[in-house]
Nucleic acid binder design. Structure first.
Lengths: 256, 256
DNA sequence: ATACTTAGTGTAAAAAAGACACTATACAAA
DNA sequence: TTTGTATAGTGTCTTTTTTACACTAAGTAT
């Protein structure tokens, strides 16, 4: 613990940590059943009782811009780089840090725990399987947690999570971003379930298929599912070109 | 000038100015012809040649949250309070301040002109007529400028403006926010022109009317236009209740 | 063999969007 | 006072999109 703080302090000297701005990341994952969020716990002691969870986040360095900082944090936590990452906004209540617990946590990780910090939130979508969770300077223990089971988080992180989720849903209606939660090859059934999980409603299978196929961003593969106790589905992947174009322009309406 | 900086410094003592976070506001107005944006010029000298324009903005105080700070800035500039105001996001490139001009400007208004400042942008919609422009600590001269004529702004303000405009357009497709740009009583023709101006395209009059009336948020008034050289239009106003409900829930699709 | 599970497919009805043209009424200009 | 000009206000038909809905196919498990 001391070890790590010392290393952080050293890095601060070198790189110039900016103690006024932090980044927090809402990292969504999909386990083919429901939406999950990556949360961290304080300290190494994993006694889950009573130890509050938080979103992964860190102060920024003075020589990196906000997007870079978010990408760095995500990279330190997962080893991934350049994945889907979008700013949610800035959160800066002077009284963001409410409980004694929060204060204690802050004292353990910050040089100036009393300083006002404005945090810039990002949300990210990534394939859960493809992603090992690493220990990092700001997260000694990280885990996936079903979105629906998260009722409490440290600081103002629950607000941030709610805002991020609602941005995700809004964006899903105009951009083909859901794919970022799936592996390279996936089935239409998985995509269907993903949309149902994010939008929290049943979607008619045939209508969903018709609509998603009309976007013309999917290529059918020959390969089929194996080892499933039902008729195997054919895998699909993106048509990269059309997918990219649609990602940029968006579409008018993809709601159900 | 010195006067003003001194006053600012005094206030800093009292209230605690936070020198690391600023707010910038993109204030849209509609003159029944086109979209306008409120810009300020540096200093009192209004020699418009060569003097760069910027978005109104200021550092935040340590005891106010971001929304409050944006509201304060808007209030200092227009005298208005509680108008439509929405966060666009945080902008924090370490090299936001590029040109010598920018640096000079900064030196004239900031105690620590070299410090890295992350700015949080907001956009606002307000009725242009209803709004006198006041001198304020951060804007000795302010003026409306047609959006289309703004090709250059200080710092990264042009990026901020572009992002704000695109957020405005996206939001217009799901929420009835355009009304905020109009006076209490307005005509369907004015609303029609407003949508055409924001979306930058012609919209069929009859289709527009049908669609907007179906939202059921407008009440027809008896009062008619006077003094116009054509058939006078009846004024309308909101049905407050339905309007509020729709503002919160939004609608799926109001694109043209 | 049978049960179970998900894959995969089409159609008809309803709703929404898009295209399109004329009359009405005020003021201005001649 | 006539004529021009500018915007208000209105309905229908066609095309597209959305919605609701049920069965067969192909694998595994028992």
């Amino acid at each position: 613990m001391e070890e790590i703080r010392k290393r952080r302090d050293e890095m601060m000297m070198k790189r110039g940590l900016n103690p006024h701005i932090s980044i927090d990341c809402v990292i969504f994952g999909f386990d083919f059943e429901q939406l999950n969020v990556l949360v961290i716990r304080r300290g190494v002691d994993k006694s889950k009782k009573k130890s509050r969870m938080a979103l992964p986040g860190d102060l920024i360095y003075d020589d990196e811009n906000l997007d870079e900082a978010a990408d760095r944090i995500l990279n330190e936590l997962t080893g991934l780089k350049g994945v889907f990452l979008e700013q949610v906004g800035a959160f800066g209540d002077p009284d963001r840090i409410k409980t004694d617990d929060d204060q204690e946590w802050l004292r353990s990780i910050r040089k100036k725990p009393e300083a006002r910090v404005v945090t810039v939130a990002y949300y990210s979508l990534l394939p859960m399987d493809n992603c090992k969770l690493l220990a990092s300077s700001f997260a000694l223990s990280a885990e996936w947690k079903p979105l629906k089971e998260i009722n409490e988080l440290a600081f103002d992180h629950l607000d941030i999570l709610k805002d991020s989720y609602s941005k995700l849903r809004a964006k899903l209606a105009t951009h083909p971003i859901g794919f970022n939660l799936l592996p390279e090859k996936f089935t239409l059934g998985q995509l269907h379930k993903l949309y149902e999980a994010i939008l929290e409603k049943d979607i008619d299978k045939r209508n969903f298929r018709r609509k998603i196929l009309k976007l013309d961003i999917l290529t059918q593969l020959e390969e089929k599912q194996t080892g499933v106790a039902h008729k195997p589905s054919r895998f699909v992947k993106f048509n990269e070109k059309n997918y990219k174009k649609l990602s940029e322009t968006g579409f008018d309406n993809f709601s159900f």
